[in-house]
Amino acid sequence: MTATLHYRTALLLRSFRWLPPLLLHLAVMAIGLAAGPRPLLDSLGWSAAALLPAAAWLVRVSVTAEPPAARACVAAATGPGRAHTAGVLAALLCSVVLGAVSTAVVVAVADPHTTDHLKAVPVVPAAAAGLLAALVTALLGTAVGALTNPPVLLRPGWAVPVTALTAVLVLVAAGSPANAAVTGLVTGSRTGVVPFPPAPLLLAAFAACGATWLAATLSGRRG
C-alpha cells in the first residue's frame, strides 16, 4: 500500500493536474484576505472553508490521472480497491499539505485580535484550531470527491457539477462537520475563545473512511 500511495502521489504531483484546484483555492483565499489584515480566527475559518471544494477537486484529478491501460496494470498488482484507495489518499495528502500551508500564511498575515479589535487572540492555539478545521474540511472534501467521481459517478457531465454542488452543500448545511468547524472559528473570532471541538474531526474522518471504502468496493465492479 505504501508503494502504491507513493506511486499515486508521484503521479499526481508530476502531472501538474493539481494546478486548477490550487488556483481555485488561491482565488477564494485572495477574495477573503485581500482587503487588508482581517481578524485571525475569521480568516482561518475562511481558509478552511476554501479548502473543501479544492480537496474534492483534487480527488477527481487524482483518481482520473491514469489512462485505463495503466490503471489496469496497477489494479492487477494490488487489486482495484487498493489502487483506488491509494489515489484518494494521495489527494487527501495534498489537501492536508495545502491546508497547512494556507493556515501558516493566514497566521502570518492576519490580525491576531477579535472581530471588534478589542481582545487579543493567542496565536499558537489559534493556529492549532485553524489546522484542526483545515483537517476537517480536507477530510470532508475528500469524502465528497470520492463519492461524486469514478467509480461512483462515471460520466464527467454528471460528476463535475455534482462534485461542485455537494461541496457547497456540505459547507453551508447546518449539522455538517465542515459547517460546525468553520462556524466555530467565526464565532470564536467574535468571543475571543479559541474553539477545539473534537466531534467535527471524528465525524469528518468517519465520512472520509466510509466514502473511500464505498468507492474502493465499487472499483472493478462498475464501468
Binding site: 508503494a3 507513493h6 508521484a10 502531472s15 491501460a69 495503466a70 496494470c73 498488482a77
Partner: peptide
Amino acid sequence: TAYVPERFPPALPFDAHGYLVHLGRV
C-alpha cells in the same frame, strides 16, 4: 499477478525507468 494491456498510452508523467521502478515497488 501482472497484466499487460494491448495498447499502453504514454500519458504518464514518468520516464521509462522511473515508471518501471514505481510499478516494481507496487
